[in-house]
Amino acid sequence: MLRVEDLHVHYGGIHALKGIELAVGEGQIVALIGANGAGKSTTLNTISGLVRASGGRVEFLGKDITNAPSHEIVRMGLCQVPEGRKIFPEMTVIENLLMGAYIRNDSEEIKADRDLVFDLFPRLKERQHQVASTLSGGEQQMLAIGRGLMSRPKLLLLDEPSMGLAPLLVKEIFNIVKAINQQGTTILLVEQNANMALSIADYGYVLETGRTVLHGPAQELAANEEVKAAYLGG
């Protein structure tokens, strides 16, 4: 479904991505793990068109989307839930969800999807008229994911959904991610919490200083000694 080949990115003089390779198959959860600064977020941002690639190729549903404008990529069914949530702070919960459905015009179905999101995150329903900046960290993360779902993506990119959340909340979020996947959305997940990520993923990639250094089925990776030593605290 998504194929990334030999992806390179330069920031100023820094060579941030040095040939990333990865593939995501339909229906999968794929985890991208690695240390801070390894290039995980940059990889997602380049796929979704926020960052320009200086070389390589990104292919989504058989089409070349390398360096295509973000808004066109979203329309093809690829939606990113960015790191740090990036919800619209001055808008209400409902307005944020509506922004997620920006590319759609079917107002009846948008309403239906909104109710689906509320089913998934009952807490958002309670706070639907609240301004987003007044939500707690966990609720903001839920809103960010809910907003991402509103575009009805075929592939959802999740960037560090566990960041800054209490352990209990992290579990809740991951359960929901799994549920979303079971409802048919393919997921590419960037996580610093490698354990958690590999526990729900089908396949995993390990990034190190801008390169894919290791990949394999999630369970194998989780059992790999190197990975355990570096990322799982083993």
């Binding site: 068109g49 926020l50 808008m91 922004m99």
Partner: peptide
């Protein structure tokens, strides 16, 4: 209106707005 909301979205967070499919 949709363009109005898009305007507010862009002013609050430009990158997030792009990820919503908004043509900046």
């Amino acid at each position: 209106t949709k363009p109005g909301r898009a305007m507010r979205a862009v002013s609050q967070d430009r990158d997030a707005a792009r990820l919503m499919g908004i043509d900046i």
